[in-house]
């Protein structure tokens, strides 16, 4: 009887194939957060944790990490600092910020310096964070070591920039800055309504769009989000004096904006933004898979369905040409 109920022996789960699972690195100054996250992800990921940003950087130097998820406010090194340095050390690692403090400077830093894939608020929802982190890790897994390899420079072509702003002064200044610093390299168009912006998108090849949040009476947020959703190869830079934490988080998660620049416009900042935006646009053009790294959450709060279909249509005609 006893023998009979002895179950068939199955091999224990082979832990040595842990190497095949994506690696996550969590950084938070609260150990309980780390313990909790480790348990949440341990089943499907190799999970590394540390309370110290410096140690996190050492880990990134030492081994392949697919996604780095960091808190913002930590005593030894801030999250944005960590993510910025992680960009240089391990460019292929996807970067995410997980924070309970909506500090506008930190959010802007996570865009401009951290170039984060997602900004997640504490307290988080277990299913959501699993989906977000899983997606990030899968993207890094599928791309492998791509960004670490230098880009083969292709023949230079004149690349298009579209400014969407209702101020002629901004347009004139930007044109002057560009002519001054990059003569002949870029073709700048200026739209002062959503409609004009759409018209340019339909007729011009654009690499970078620089847009305010509000242009005339148009709210550009749905445009920015939808465009990134269907057109991830166009790099977006937001130039505005509008400051709102929840909007910025939306623009990260649903808009993957490349830079957030404050108005009044500063020459050096906007030129650096254009430069790095062009590098990113080239990257995506030459290695189309890289656009996965800027995949957006399905845009929410899009009031005007017309924009979606128009931008989607634009995508079709663009892919034909």
């Amino acid at each position: 009887m006893i023998d009979m109920i002895t179950p068939p022996v199955k091999p224990a789960r082979p832990m040595q194939n842990a190497d095949l699972r994506p690696t996550l690195l969590f950084v938070d100054d609260e150990e309980r957060i780390l313990r909790s996250l480790r348990m949440l992800f341990a089943a499907n990921f190799r999970v590394l944790v540390t309370t110290d940003g410096h140690e996190a950087l050492e880990i990134l130097k030492r081994e392949k990490v697919h996604a780095l998820i960091s808190d913002q406010r930590m005593p030894l090194m801030s999250g944005v600092d960590l993510l910025r340095q992680a960009r240089d050390i391990a460019p292929d690692t996807m970067r995410l910020l997980l924070t309970g403090y909506s500090d506008i400077e930190a959010i802007i830093g996570s865009i401009n310096d951290g170039e984060v894939f997602r900004y997640i608020n504490k307290p988080w929802n277990a299913d959501e964070i699993r989906a977000i982190v899983g997606e990030a890790a899968n993207i890094a897994m599928s791309l492998g070591q791509m960004l670490a390899k230098p880009l083969e420079q292709s023949a230079k072509e004149i690349r298009g920039i579209l400014l969407v702003d209702d101020s002629a002064e901004i347009a004139n200044n930007l044109r002057e800055y560009i002519d001054d610093s990059f003569p002949g390299a870029f073709h700048l168009e200026w739209a002062n309504t959503l409609n004009d912006a759409m018209a340019f998108l339909e007729t011009r090849k654009l690499s970078v769009i620089i847009s305010d949040i509000n242009v005339g009476r148009d709210d550009m947020t749905p445009f920015i989000k939808t465009l990134k959703h269907f057109h991830p190869h166009i790099v977006t830079i937001v130039l505005t004096n509008f400051r709102d934490t929840s909007l910025l988080v939306e623009l990260i998660n649903q808009g993957q904006i490349h830079r957030f620049l404050p108005k009044p416009m500063r020459k050096s900042m906007v030129l650096r933004g254009i430069q790095s935006g062009m590098v990113l646009a080239d990257e995506i053009r030459l290695r189309p898979a890289a656009k996965q790294r800027h995949k957006v959450e399905t845009p929410k709060n899009i009031p005007d369905a017309g924009i979606i279909s128009r931008i989607r249509g634009l995508f079709r005609s663009a892919s034909k040409s």
Partner: peptide, 20 residues
């Protein structure tokens, strides 16, 4: 704002732990 952050940290892991 400060207190919200103070609460969000324990709330983060408490919430997660209860879900687990």
């Amino acid at each position: 704002a400060g207190v919200a952050h103070e609460i969000n940290t324990p709330l983060g892991y408490v919430h997660n732990n209860v879900e687990m």
